[in-house]
Design a protein around this nucleic acid. Structure first.
Lengths: 151, 151
DNA sequence: GCTATATAGATGTATCTACATATATTAGAT
DNA sequence: ATCTAATATATGTAGATACATCTATATAGC
């Protein structure tokens, strides 16, 4: 669906202005799609992302702060996400032997399995539903990477 | 900043996969930038969007449902956003004379002024900071519009 | 060794989001 | 005219977000 239909507007002051709204809209679409897919698994979007990040270093544990910098939404409250995952026995906490301030987090077997199952369910509905060729996706990435060059 | 730096990762299964994360990241950036700019005005991102939508038909009032379809994030709770704006005397509610179920919303003079002031503050930090030419923005919009063709 | 500063993580809180449900009003069917 | 279904908005609630503050531990300077 084109942005114009989605938000019932055709007045944009410029293509740059439209691009800002378009990015916000597509992100919202992707996020809600993923969240709905995750619902049956009892996982929120951010809980799922943390599991994925942990999988990246599995079976090695990760520090909370290293999880935080890998998250897309930097204002996420990682300790609280971990709380939820720990309640569900999907991750384990342990104090770092090197630095007692640090907490190390590791996937449990259950966490690893749930991640796999939920990923299988999400994949077709997000990545693959993008009506783009790999070439187009590459162009899109190049343009998106340019956007924030200022900060 | 490139996505790779932002989330300290370089492993993407494909450009399409990277594109999904990239969109989520850019949207988060834009949203937090705008939210911070709006803070001094006491407006949330969504309150600001509603004011903008109302401005579009000003001085004509709008129905709640017509505001809702113009919002980017469709799960926004419009009546509650209106509550906040009404508390601050930025909008007025009145029952529609044609259909008593409908509520008509209109900007007050204060609302109109605050919108103008806040827009002046936001504009340079969002739209103009996009490091894209209009041509590139047009390409970006074309690709983004293609994405959701499935739904 | 002792105090000041910095860092890691946890916790507190107001607001927002997503979604379910409730209430009021209108339109439609008989 | 009356009952049923649909529509428009409001309200209730669990959980998430953004951000401030607190606690524990570590580092650095003296």
């Amino acid at each position: 669906m084109k942005l114009e239909q989605a938000i019932q507007t055709s007045k944009f002051s410029s293509d740059k202005h439209k691009a800002v709204l378009n990015i916000l809209y597509r992100a919202w679409m992707v996020k809600t799609t993923i969240s709905r897919e995750l619902r049956p698994f009892g996982l929120s979007h951010e809980q799922y992302n943390v599991l994925r990040i942990l999988k990246g270093s599995y079976p090695q544990a990760m520090r909370v702060k290293d999880i935080a910098i890998r998250l897309i939404e930097k204002s996420s409250n990682v300790p609280r996400i971990i709380d939820k995952l720990e309640d569900k026995k999907l991750v384990q906490r342990l104090v770092s032997p090197e630095d007692n301030r640090e907490t190390l987090i590791n996937l449990t077997t259950a966490g690893s399995k749930l991640l796999e199952a939920s990923t299988r369910s999400i994949q077709p509905n997000t990545i693959q539903s993008l009506q783009l060729t790999e070439k187009e996706a590459a162009v899109l990435n190049r343009l998106l990477d340019k956007i924030g060059a200022g900060e």
